[in-house]
Design a protein around this nucleic acid. Sequence first.
RNA 1: GCGAAAGUGGCGGAAUUGGUAGACGCGCUGGACUUAGAAUCCAGUCCUGAUUUCUCGGGGUAGGGGUUCAAAUCCCCUCUUUCGCACCA
Length: 826
Amino acid sequence: MEYPFQEIEKKWQKYWEKKRLFYVNEQDQRPKYYLLSMFPYPSGALHMGHISNYSIADAVARYKIMQGYKVLQPMGYDAFGLPAENYAIEHNSHPKITTHQNIEKMRKQFKSIGFGYDWDREFATCDEEYYRWNQWIFLKMYEKGLIYRKSSFVNWCPFCQTVLANEQAEHGYCWRCETKVEQREVEQWFIKITDYAEELLDHSKLGKWPQRVITMQKNWIGKSYGTEIFFKIAESNEIIPVFTTRPDTIFGCTYMVLAAEHPLVRKLKKGSPNEKEIDEFVNRIINEDKILRTAEDTEKEGIFTRRYAINPVNGERIPIWIGNYVVMEYGSGAVMCVPAHDQRDFEFSNKYELPIKIVIQNWDKSLKLEKMKSAYVDDGIMTNSEQFDGMKSREAINKISEWMEQKGIGKKTVNYRLRDWGISRQRYWGTPIPIIYCDKCGIVPVRENELPVKLPDSVQVGKTTQNPLATVSDFVNTTCPKCGGPAKRETDTMDTFFDSSWYYARFCDPKNDKLPFDKEIASHWLPADQYIGGIEHACMHLLYARFFHKFFRDIGLTLTDEPFTNLLTQGMVTKDGAKMSKSKGNIVDPQSFIDRYGSDTIRVFMLFASPPEKDVEWNDEGLKGAFRFLNRIWILVSEKNDFLIHCPKNYDEDIEISQSLRNLRYSTHHTIKKVTQDIENRMQFNTAIAAIMEHLNNVTSFNINEDSSNIEKAIYRESIEVIPKLLSPFAPHLAEEIWEMLGHKPSILESGWIAYNKKFLVKNEITYVIQINGKLRSKVIVDKNTSKNEVEKLALADPKVQKYTKGKKIKKIIVVPKKLVNVVVE
RNA sequence: GCGAAAGUGGCGGAAUUGGUAGACGCGCUGGACUUAGAAUCCAGUCCUGAUUUCUCGGGGUAGGGGUUCAAAUCCCCUCUUUCGCACCA
């Protein structure tokens, strides 16, 4: 027999919707709990990862509702971006059409699973009413000086004549035509997230975040203390700043290397006798695959510019090289090279026969240039460094920096690995950047009251060989807000990480047409108490969102420092030990399983299979196991229903009862305690569900019939009534159904969470484990009031124990109250 | 290379503070029901050795060492896996 899950699930989904149990507002007096799951890209169908993620979130939401919170659990769609554009190209359609079709499908699917969302707050980032606030935020950041233009390199496919995203240019070849991707320099918009680097490094105002994520963010930001040293270029007025963490080695600097992308390269090579060679070298390096080029085992290569810089501490002329091992993305894109004390420089100078000079001696002063097989990178004693000679190198770092600061040739700085955030995308399906270019007035931001700059529909995606928006003359041609003359619009769109950086706040006030969100309303809900999503967003999305929140605070839109108090990063759903993916062909579609076993079953399986932050291995048989469990509950209650509703609800708690009845009552209250703690303290749903299963086993093995006493009937009834309560976060439909069958008024969500009675957790008999030398040998059951001495005596009197103690000297006896006795013998 | 996390039956995983290792589920084995299968129910299931049975012993949490009356849990070393960073100046 199978329980009618289809009927039941539909029935309760309708009921919840009708009663609006998941719709919340600010006036509601219950304490708030904002539970947010990372919103999905609308691909058209939920995959297993979504089911897992949203089942976790819904379990927490329902538990919190039963605890008396008003839970804000919203849902929306991260709808802009390249995948949608590609999808439309493939299906020969328009992203607006396909995206909306996909959203329809997903909403329907969400509803059929019965997740408790406040649907009044639903939005998609491609909605005009949403992205206009992207533009508004952009303008505010622009006003605050957080946005600037800079030229940088993009992937360019010369065959498709188009810009490629990094993931489209994997291994350096175009994903569509397999042409070798080139690097082109393009002017792009950047956000100064680095202004907030220091604050983003401070994770002290967060609640429970996985240590792993915090560490990843710290590495990503990559703060390091060092010194910036200014090198003058000989026969020029140019100054090259160089960042180093080892200013103590400055006297050993024998040359300098610039990154191939360094802006000064262009000037330096001009008029050089080997200009052509330099050009060839630079072009080759720039167009090499980034990952390959920056691998540690890639051979170092370089070319001499035939120009020199002046080492500011001793006036020496040092050659300037261009090398593949220096990257533009870190520091200033130029390094001072100290071959004696840096392994990379050591290798490079050996290859190109550049001079090596020891300026740090090892502690026994045995370092000899001729014998060096690698750089000496450790601390030591300063040498060949003029007035710093004899000093410990560790101390010299600071001393030299201060001396250079005084002389104006350097300064102590902090360097971050974190780069400013390039948000320009040469793509159609995104938020238009609200900027106008006027020949007379230059760069002019769009006026706030003219927002939104609408994304035009009339673009044939995939058919253009240039930036798609540039082909729409109605869009491009406009008038300058300043002078009224003819002007052109920016045709780049925004990175979709911009959209997802503040959706959490919009959910608080999703209909606002005056502001992205109202300060008062947002402060009511923010910060989100619990955020749930994948670990893959540890750095980018979570850093951007934290940055946005701090920016909102600085312009007076929010009150707190952090957007998400607690973070849970859930694991992936795997099949055969690997992430489900198209390329591996191991994708399992959840829908067929939902149709066959119901949404409660798939939820229970997902939550039961492993703790939330670990991966879940998909298993058809395991799913059936979850179904069997739910079915067993339904059969138990429906078969005994008539009997159960005639069992008394209350009983005298102090009355003496049999041991087996006492055990049943213990199981009931112990399970409540276990499930509550597992959810509350650890979000460990697998053990919570296991506890319910165990309790169900205890209940079904208890003998009860019409002739049983009233107290037996009452305790039995109680043991069954806790099941729907505790099950409600995990299998909400079945829980409601059973709750109603047992004669209660729906909804179970409004019935409150259940408390256990401590009194019933006290056992009147205690089983002591008896060990001899730490090995389990016997057990004794004693009354709970038995004293330590008596337990000890009883243990020694045990025949099995005597077998081991006979004729031996007892050295020690350890009694752990209520647990065990360990007898130590010779 | 650096950093972090982890390693427990055939499998997913329990063991919350050092105190009965393997909860719960899957799978498997045997039985009941059935013409048969599916479903369901009952019993068993870490390895291993005795034992007619009730049972009794030995070993066991990647490997090795240590602390402790007592270690999956704490410490040291080694191995493996996963993840993050990676020519970071």
